[in-house]
Design a protein around this nucleic acid. Sequence first.
RNA 1: GGUGGAGUGGCCGAGAGGCGAGGCUCGGGACUGCAAAUCCCGCUACACGGGUUCAAAUCCCGUCUCCACCUCCA
Length: 462
Amino acid sequence: MRVYDTLSREVSAVLASNGEFVRIYCCGPTVYRDAHVGNLRTFLLADLVQRTLAFSGVKSRLVQNITDVGHMSEDFEEDKIIAQSKLEKKDPYSVAREYEARFHQDCRALNIKPADAYPRASECIDLMIDSITKLIANELAYQGEDGSVYFDATRFPSYGALSGNRLDALKPGHRYEFTEGGAKRFHADWALWKAAGARSEMIWETPWGRGFPGWHIECSAMSLKYLDGRVDLHIGGIDLRFPHHEDERAQSNSLITEGGEAVSLWLHGEHLLFEGRKMSKSSGNVVLVSDVAARGIDPLAIRFCFMENRYRSQMDLSWNSIQAAHLVLERWRKAYQGWLKSPINQSERVNQLVAEIASAFNNDLDTPRAMISLRGIERSDLEDGEKRALFEALDALFGLDLLKEREAKRLTNEAEALLEKRKEARANRDFKSSDQLRDELALLGIEVRDTSEGQEWSWKIN
RNA sequence: GGUGGAGUGGCCGAGAGGCGAGGCUCGGGACUGCAAAUCCCGCUACACGGGUUCAAAUCCCGUCUCCACCUCCA
């Protein structure tokens, strides 16, 4: 498998440097709110990598962190989790655990396979303290007058290589926390450990005083620990390229003893726009998995839409395209149930198509091309047994639940009775009342249609 | 201001010098008591201005517009 590497700006092979399994790290959520589908697009990227590798028989280990402390709000005053806990009037840890559970639930809804480990920042404080101690000992970090510990950006010569920023071109911006009289020596230095100040929650004792970790150090500490000192592939959203990953690279490269790059490949997913604007809280266009489900749309329609676009292009999502994807998914699942009547036929053409699609995935996750091939199957001149073989072979790769039978959704007694009455009315050719019953069912969100095999129904989507 | 990306039919989107992907919507037809579903048919597009070429959505030059990043973010 090959992917586009942000550092070298080339498409490069994903390799298991330990000869056994590919070590993958993906920046996970900060659990102070629900993940929106834009966040999930990045998490899907890790899933697609995992599935592609597994499909080719390559083993991998994926670690994804849960940031439950240290991620500061815009004003640099308040921790995001603590701010939310004040809003909800709850303990910060219970807020974090709640949103973490919902993150897992949302991933499941999109068929994003779980990572092998989900270390929490608050439970890896010792790792971070060890890392910071090492950086101070090597004179790459220093303690400022404010008691916080900072990484000395000037001591890391290739700083900026990942993001394309040059240290001398980085100007202190208006959103920037640096002030001339502040504790940092240089405007691009960043906090590894922050002094507690007035803060009383989520703080720890350290050799350099009481406080809490900076955001960037957690990923260095956890990735190197949980992946045994080396990362073959690091995944994250494009916005993390700078400063988060730039800083992480400086830290991690400084921490590994054997030198070189701690991370072999950096894979960045582009942003999701919704109706023309970047999906974000501040734009007010956030869409959650629960919003999709509430409209009666299968959340996998979102996955479908994502896969029709290349991960490193910005994509614009809309309710229109989500609905279109939903309809196609439903049609395919129904078609597959029909193909089941034919015996499976693993023909040469089937094998060839599977190989073609797998190679699209392997080629820098060219899922749009793979989706084109998948779309072609339904109306192709292949036999039903061949179509069946294809769907069965490919479902593990696409993760779209193509083999799923439409679940028998729970009907209320009322709806059940109406359906029964309508069946009778139709048997008696009493079309007037059957039409009226159809309208009544529509009000309950149920759509009925009559086929040669009798009355069928489905839930309407909004 | 700096950097990166993009403009394709009503909408979403592949394609990257020559036979107009596909999907959704819409219109017509078949089927149906009607409708729905399904199937068949139709809707002929590449931001603008130049240029290269026998041939440009695709290559070159210029212009316009949009989006993102530049110390909050997936």
